[in-house]
């Protein structure tokens, strides 16, 4: 099945935008609406759009990794982020913060295991949504 020229032309533009938007959503998620879950959903929309325009095989090639593997790696990343709290001796999933280059009036660049956890969630959602959708697309 060949999709229309309009879809294919628009996809070229939209996929990149959607993926960029998904990462922006992921990063702003700690204090504002957003986060790994929403980001993952938006990111998977990008790949689904690509699959609609160019077919599932092309989308799988663009992903490079199998979607299941992405989801499982995401689970591993999220777990590792939670278990990281063991190093300072806190309970599982306790937030750990590191502020780089603090100065007067600003705390500096915040780094936390919460962000790593969110990246894990992003990958899990991206992977599992794509697993389901691509499997259904290929069959129906």
């Amino acid at each position: 099945m060949k999709s229309s020229l309009i879809v294919r032309a628009a996809t070229r533009l939209l996929v990149g935008l959607l993926l960029l938007f998904s990462i922006w959503m992921l990063l702003r998620g700690h204090n504002e609406p957003g986060g790994g879950f929403i980001g993952g959903l938006i990111g998977s929309t990008g790949f689904i759009l690509y699959a609609i325009a160019h077919g599932c095989r092309a989308a799988r090639e663009a992903l490079r990794l199998e979607p299941q593997t992405i989801a499982m790696v995401g689970l591993g990343v999220a777990l590792a982020a939670g278990a990281f709290a063991a190093i300072p001796g806190d309970a599982l999933f306790t937030g750990q913060w590191l502020f780089l280059w603090p100065s007067e009036g600003s705390k500096g660049v915040p780094l936390s295991n919460i962000l790593v956890f969110d990246i894990g969630v992003y990958l899990v959602v991206l992977g599992s949504v794509l697993t389901l959708v691509l499997a259904l697309e290929e069959e129906v």
């Binding site: 879950f37 599992s128 389901l132 499997a135 259904l136 129906v140």
Partner: peptide, 16 residues
């Protein structure tokens, strides 16, 4: 809702 979404997506695939 999220869990329900996952379960029903699976159930629908299974029924199909």
């Amino acid at each position: 809702i999220v869990i329900g979404f996952g379960l029903f997506a699976f159930a629908l695939t299974l029924v199909y």
